[in-house]
Each structure stands twice: as C-alpha cells, then as structure tokens.
Write a protein that binds this DNA or RNA. Structure first.
Lengths: 131, 131
DNA sequence: TTCATTACTTGCATTTTGCAACCATTATTA
DNA sequence: TAATAATGGTTGCAAAATGCAAGTAATGAA
C-alpha cells in the first residue's frame, strides 16, 4: 500500500456527527463504491476489480482495499480455487451497502441517458460458505 | 466559479455506461451530496450551505453549485424573502436523489457509532410554488 | 528452473482540495 | 444619502489525491 491513510478513522476525525457525512467520509469518492458494486456482482479478486471497464488504477485499488478492510466493509478469505491466493468478500456491514448501490443504479438509469443496468440482484454469499 | 469543469458532461466522457459509475461521476465526491442533504432539509441559500457543520470551503461550494446546475439537479429561483437575491432548490431530478440520501443516512446510523439522524423526511417543495 | 500471472509498490506529473484573503453586490443603519 | 454590514462569491497558493507507466515480489504452471 502506498501511504497510511490514518489509523482507524476514529469518530473524532469525522467532519460532523451527521450519518450522511460520516458515510461519505467512508465511501464518498469516485472509486470505492465501484469496488462494492463489483463485489455485489460476484467479483472477488484484485484482477477482476482491475478489469472493470472504468479502469481503476492499481495503486488506487490497492489503497481502497486497505481502507475498506480497515472499515470492516470487506474481508479477505482463502480463494475458492484451491490456490494460496486470497479473495475479497463483503462483510455484513458491506452487504448492507446494497440498498445504497441500488439507489445509485436506479437514479442513473432514470435520469442519465445511455446507461445500462449492471447491478442486478444476485444471491448473497455468506462468509465461510466457500461453496 | 474557479475553472470550467467540462461543458456539459456529455455521455462520451463517462467512465462506462454503468448507471452506478455514471451517478458517481455526478455526485460521487465528499461534498456534493451534503449540499443535496441541506437542500432536502429545507436550506436554500449559499450562506446556509456554508454554515453546515462540515464546513465546506466556499470555492468548492461555488464550483459544486455550478456543476449541479449544469446537471439540472438544482435550479435558481428568486428568494422568497422579497429581496433581489436568489435561492437554490432541487429540481425533480434532484428530489429523486432522496432515496440515495436516505440509504446513506440509514447505513451510517446502523454501522457507525456516534452518528445522529439529520435527514428527516420533510414536506416537498415544488418549483414555482413561491408561496 | 524458467516463465507467466497475480497482486501489488514506486515515482512522478497533473488535478483537486483546503485555507485564507480579497472583492462586488445587495441590504441595513444612522 | 452615506457609511456599514452581510451575502455570495473569486483568487492565489500550498498540500493532498489522482492517474499513468514502470517496476517488483510471490505464487503457480510447464
């Protein structure tokens, strides 16, 4: 990871106690929610996030994954392909962002011409269900 | 306004046709949705946005207001205090962001300790209802 | 053991942010 | 009416974040 982005985001560094502002402190940038989107779509590996059409730079992706793990929105699990590599998956806290992503999707579909649905409801996967 | 931020945000400058990515191109930063929050709470003047506890810098606020008008999310109307000054209000497209803000609020309230509700449902105001 | 892939890190140029100061109108007051 | 204050911004600049290309360490495959 490139640079330490503050130890744990303690409540004292928040801009205000407003839950909207607080949520934006955590997921309010151009890339973080795209990673969440990919996870909701079933993607789980660094390479898969990197391959998404928006083309997130690898240094940004790497830093965001660290930040998301610190915020307990994602966790690392053993990859289900038998290799030693690890995969990412949403925690319960991360899964709870689904309505937010759906709201973003619905607004975009309704008000911006030329967008096409990408975030369809997919079956939830739960931790330790390595299937 | 400080610097022209691209004429109209034509579809061709989008990172992808994904409606989530497209929405984030428009409202995906740390400040824009706080302005929308304030508008949903009934605030309508530059000074009121500026006075919110998160303390948005005035140059950022100014640039975001221009951008939001370009995206037809807000519009300027005559202030309802009889003065020559103008106020901002949400368009229908902007009001349609309400579920998104509610999702942000709910997630913050549930998962981040120490946040307090700020975005409560308030009666809608419609354009040209200068009351 | 060599090569390819994955999952990153590093360096650097460009862009955005944040802060403080300043300025032009509009409104208030004396 | 003149002076003063408040509103709604700009401007300049330092610091931080972003984006791109290139490099690297640790697997995994042949």
């Amino acid at each position: 990871m490139a640079k330490e982005p503050a130890p744990k985001l303690p409540a004292s560094t928040r801009r205000s106690p407003c839950p909207v502002a607080c949520s934006l402190d955590i997921v309010g940038d151009r890339w973080t929610l795209l990673i969440i989107r990919d996870l909701l779509l079933g993607r789980s590996r660094f390479k898969e996030f990197s391959a998404s059409p928006e083309g997130i730079p690898t240094n940004i992706l790497s830093e965001r994954l660290v930040r998301l793990r610190r915020s307990r929105i994602i966790e690392q699990i053993p990859a289900d392909d038998g290799s030693k590599r690890r995969a990412y998956q949403l925690t319960e806290k991360g899964e709870a962002l689904r309505p937010l992503l759906e709201a973003l999707r619905d607004w975009g579909l309704t008000w911006e011409k030329g967008t096409r649905a990408a975030l369809t409801p997919i079956p939830r996967r739960r931790a330790s269900t390595a299937q």
